[in-house]
């Protein structure tokens, strides 16, 4: 009898300890990024582009990478919405609930979700070779949109699936076509969830480095054209950390703080959104 309770106690504390370890790791990572980054953070970091000799410790900032990342992730998110929303609406409204095409599409998104970003990068690179594109903002946008497509689609699918059938039936009964039902009823009903999905995908897109290394390239100036290379924050961190100079490495810490802050803001906003935009939602 006692052995059972001893075992119970041991394993209970083991599971508790593991939980603590995992959450302490998260806290530790955030603390490291903030503590290291804050001492190198200054206004120039976010308002200036790298000046001559930046990588030797001279003045400048990473505005080029901040804007490049925002453009790139923004463009990719936009492209991904254009594909994922119609696909999700199709498999939920046009095709039958348990149809083969719906199951196949979900399955292929799940599988795509697991494909490493470096493979997307390599694939994006082959597409660019095929079309004769050089490393450019456009190439980056296309590659990252492929990368976030499965994440966004599956997240939107989860919320669109939850839209009650009665709501659809009511719309059809009033004589609406499927398209009208999809656009005017379903997207409104699922709007908060769709917003969250879009933000999550944006966050994933802005943080990814391996897929843009081949496709978007890097440059010290602010991107002004789709056909020019664009800098991105993750690559800026990677390159600055790779230099031997402590000042430049310090800037990598500051850049990491900027990137992590963007991710934190996105995650807080997407949590806050869950309760908003419900004006059109039928409960």
């Amino acid at each position: 009898m006692d052995r059972r309770y001893a075992e119970e106690k041991i394993f209970r504390s083991l599971t508790f300890a593991s939980t603590v370890v995992i959450f302490l790791t998260l806290a530790f990572i955030l603390a490291t990024v903030i503590a290291k980054g804050i001492s190198y953070m200054n206004l120039a970091m976010i308002t200036q582009t790298p000046k001559g000799g930046y990588y030797l410790g001279k003045e400048g900032g990473v505005l080029n990478a901040i804007l490049g990342s925002l453009y790139l992730a923004g463009g990719a998110t936009f492209l991904a919405i254009l594909v994922s929303l119609p696909v999700v609406l199709y498999i939920n409204i046009y095709s039958k609930k348990e149809s083969k095409i719906a199951a196949f599409t979900r399955f292929s998104f799940d599988v795509l979700w697991g494909v490493p970003s470096i493979v997307y990068g390599a694939f994006g690179f082959t597409i660019m070779l095929f079309f004769g594109l050089r490393t450019s903002l456009l190439g980056g946008i296309i590659t990252v949109s492929l990368l976030i497509l499965p994440i966004m689609s599956r997240a939107i699918d989860e919320v669109v699936r939850m839209v009650p059938t009665e709501l659809l039936d009511a719309s059809y009964a009033l004589g609406a076509t499927k398209l009208e039902t999809a656009l005017k009823i379903v997207t409104r009903q699922a709007l908060p969830g769709i917003m969250t999905a879009v933000l999550v995908a944006f966050g994933r897109g802005i943080g990814d480095a391996a897929s843009v290394i081949f496709t978007a390239g890097f440059t010290d100036s602010i991107p002004y054209s789709l056909f020019r290379p664009a800098a991105t924050l993750p690559l800026a961190i990677f390159f600055q950390l790779g230099t031997p100079l402590p000042e430049v490495q310090g800037r990598a810490y500051a850049s990491a703080l900027i990137l992590t802050s963007i991710i934190l803001i996105i995650s807080v906003v997407s949590r806050a959104l869950t309760g908003r935009f419900t004006r059109h939602v039928v409960k």
């Binding site: 990572i29 999550v200 994933r204 990814d208 990598a252 990137l259 992590t260």
Partner: peptide, 10 residues
Amino acid sequence: GIPSVVYGMC
């Protein structure tokens, strides 16, 4: 959601 570069840096 933390980017892999940030993990690498840590």
